[in-house]
Write a protein that binds this DNA or RNA. Structure first.
Lengths: 249, 249
DNA sequence: TCTTACTTCGAACAACGTACGGAGTTCTAG
DNA sequence: CTAGAACTCCGTACGTTGTTCGAAGTAAGA
């Protein structure tokens, strides 16, 4: 098998699938089964708990066996990400105007990241681009086909929104986790930290602006939705000038 | 020493510093020295290469020694992050209108993340809130003191922009890294992947929109700046309605 | 001065990714 | 039809990692 740390092996597997050998015993497993098992682990116990040994034993094989199917852990993670992306509906097939398409894609993305927190963790660290990710980007660009934006501008918009989504998804997922994660004595990390911060925040005018916050702070999902609309307002004004006749750049 | 995985120990260290013991031999090190050494490692070789043993040997002590100063690796990382945040100038002290303040904070943040890629990696995974982070948020809120926005709304804006910055910083840092990281045979990950994708992108109309991209795609830093302005346009229109007399909410 | 609470750190533990090499299996070349 | 090449499988092992333990030494309070 191809050595790890060789991005070419991972890319080949991502795009062309496994190469069937001409000799030797039949495989008892498929790459798909391995990816599924790994995904199940990540889903239930988080990426942190995902180990080659764990996945192998879930499939009833030795750890070393996995390396006949997959060049290494990094490639396995890349496969997990790309197959997950493949499950999302393509953005340009959504109904409505470009703005409605972008909005529903963004909200669905956030929902998906919350449902599969491992996804945001893995995409944050950067994965090789697989066929589904590629197709997805292509689809996102197509949203702007009739807007008068150049392909270049469309990509700017797509990347802007993508960055926005990911930044907020990471924040929301973080908040979700700290609400679930518990200390040995049963309290959540969130309550521990909040209790701690409250004792400090009140310190005689040290934090003037924070003191003025009467409530708990805004709901992260509302923040997300609000900021997204602001961003889209900006994009919209750009789209309007683009569609003006005679101003094709 | 206090057990790891206990957030209270980390918070106490973060906010109140080390507690001087009343008996026993003097410490040969300080927490600061340890944080500095760890930061140096992260700066030069990345967070991935940061190990307790490595930091310890850099300081000429055994690995176990560090645990008398710091409850665990997680706490050390939290300390690194908070002291780094403490080095950034407070946003409300910047010159200009609220919009100029936000803009210069955002651009400086991005610069800082690019200069210290470990920072974005660590803040992405979520760290306990330290005193500097707290003071920083307080300062960011103060930017909007004279805008007519409520504290609640100001926090919404701050978090929106923060999420935006972090999402894009992660992307830019990722791009930086793939440009630097090399395969065993000397090519960068970036060139390998790009060469690979080019062979696939041309496949007979499979990727219609991507084909139309004549150039290399926009410069990530330009994307960042552009999207930020769009976002700020949206915020500005909100600020304008807030400062209208009689419309205080 | 004795005791108590420390610091230091070699050694060890459990878990990790992954390379190695031998045993067994299937296909193909001759 | 058979020899051996090419493969799968996997026990074992290597080198890491974070962290704990316990022994040895040190400073200060009683």
């Amino acid at each position: 098998m191809v050595r790890a740390h060789d991005p070419e092996a991972t890319l080949a597997l991502l795009w062309d699938g496994p190469t069937r050998p001409r000799r030797g015993p039949r495989h008892n497993l498929t790459v798909e089964e391995i990816v599924d098992a790994a995904t199940r682990v990540a889903e239930e116990e988080g990426v942190g708990a995902l180990s080659m040994r764990g996945v192998a034993s879930l499939l009833g094989v030795g750890a070393a066996t996995l390396y006949t199917y997959v060049p290494g852990k990094a490639a396995l993670l890349a496969l997990m990400v790309d197959t997950m992306i493949g499950r999302a509906p393509l953005p340009h097939t959504r109904p409505g105007t470009w703005r409605e398409k972008v909005r529903s894609w963004a909200h669905e993305d956030l929902r998906s990241y919350r449902e599969h927190p491992w996804l945001i963790e893995l995409t944050a660290t950067g994965q090789p681009v697989g066929p589904h990710a590629f197709a997805w980007t292509d689809s996102a660009l197509r949203i702007f086909e009739d807007t008068g934006l150049t392909a270049h501008e469309a990509l700017t918009v797509v990347e802007t929104v993508e960055g926005y989504i990911r930044g907020h998804a990471a924040k929301v997922v973080r908040a979700d986790r700290s609400r679930e994660r518990t200390t040995p004595d049963g309290r959540t990390w969130n309550t521990v930290q909040e209790a701690f911060l409250v004792t400090r925040a009140g310190e005689a005018g040290r934090y003037q602006a924070i003191e003025r916050l009467d409530t708990d702070g805004p709901d992260p999902e509302e923040v997300f939705a609000q900021g997204l609309e602001w961003l889209l307002d900006g994009v919209e004004s750009r789209v309007r000038t683009a569609s003006e006749p005679g101003k094709s750049h």
